[in-house]
């Protein structure tokens, strides 16, 4: 019984302390970035101003005035929202078909879809730029949205599929008896039932779209450039501009981190990829 007593002592004191330490450790870099964003570039590298300094909004003002932050932010919102919506419109019916009307090929189709995700982006980047410039879509929202949708579609379909699969077929069949057609089935029965999984998929896809930096940086110049492009442009000078760098970074990741906090429970519920039985 000694072990039980020991473990309960750990539960009362050790576990909370250790858990908080781990949580704070993981959060520290983000905290540090936000803190530094309120320092001037000169103060940011001085050890004597590590924690105590005169906060300033200079970096943020400089960012909105000189770097046109809001245009990048607006582009990020437009592309991430549209790409997420587009992914769901294509992904939900596909996952529905695979989960409720599987054929012998379903598993292979699903696996093949995931394998397209392993295609190294760098390998196909040049042909893509070549094609995009050829049809005049380079640096447009349409191109960015299409690419974001395509690179997230496999993961989205997989996530939705594993979620839909847990729904008893009888419920869907019952709808059929009542004379509901396929669209009705999806709209009236499936979507309300699988709302948790759909919302969670949408969130994850939105996060990936917002943070995507490989394609969005290389397929845009000005008009459709997102926040990743703003980061790309500001990270070049090494060292001396920590304040400015932190402000731009905070402004780029702030919205998505806060969204993540609010939707944390929702995300956890759906993020199982069929791992939970």
């Amino acid at each position: 019984m000694a072990i039980v007593a020991q473990s309960s002592k750990f539960s009362t004191y050790g576990r909370p302390v250790l858990a908080w330490a781990v949580g704070l450790l993981f959060f520290f870099p983000i905290f540090w970035m936000v803190l530094t964003s309120f320092k001037t570039d000169a103060d940011a590298v001085k050890p004597e101003f590590l924690f105590f300094f005169t906060p300033t909004l200079e970096n943020y003002l400089n960012m909105t005035e000189n770097y046109d932050y809001w245009r990048f932010a607006r582009n990020s919102v437009i592309s991430a929202v549209s790409a997420t919506a587009f992914t769901l419109v294509v992904g939900v019916p596909a996952a529905y078909a695979m989960a409720f009307n599987p054929s012998r090929a379903t598993k292979d189709v699903l696996m093949w879809m995931l394998s397209t995700k392993m295609l190294p982006a760098a390998a196909v980047l040049y042909p893509m730029i070549f094609l995009a410039k050829g049809v005049g879509l380079y640096d447009t929202h349409i191109l960015v949205i299409t690419v974001l949708c395509l690179i997230n579609l496999p993961i989205a379909i997989w996530m939705l599929f594993t979620y839909f699969k847990e729904i008893p077929k009888d419920i869907i069949e019952a709808g059929k008896m009542d004379g509901v057609n396929t669209w009705g089935e999806i709209k009236e029965i499936l979507v309300p039932l699988a709302w948790g999984g759909i919302a969670s998929t949408a969130l994850l896809v939105f996060i990936f779209c917002w943070n995507e930096a490989y394609w969005t940086v290389r397929l845009t110049t000005i008009d459709a450039a997102t926040l990743s492009k703003l980061i790309e442009g500001n990270r070049a000078p090494e060292g001396l501009f920590f304040g400015r760098l932190s402000a731009v970074s905070t402004a780029a990741v702030g919205p998505i981190v806060v969204l993540g906090w609010f939707c944390q429970k929702q995300l956890v519920q759906g993020l199982t990829f069929g791992a939970v039985k």
Binding site: A19, W20, V22, G23, L24, F26, F27, P29, I30, W32, M33, I207, W210, N211, A213, L227, S228, I231, E232, R235, L245, S246, S249, A252, V253, I256, V257, L259, G260, W261, Q264
Partner: peptide, 19 residues
């Protein structure tokens, strides 16, 4: 603690590296 812990996952990879 859970919120603190999952925050890094939301950070843009480029920002992560720069930071």
């Amino acid at each position: 603690v859970r919120v603190l812990l999952i925050s890094p996952f939301f950070v843009m990879p480029a920002v992560n590296a720069v930071l």
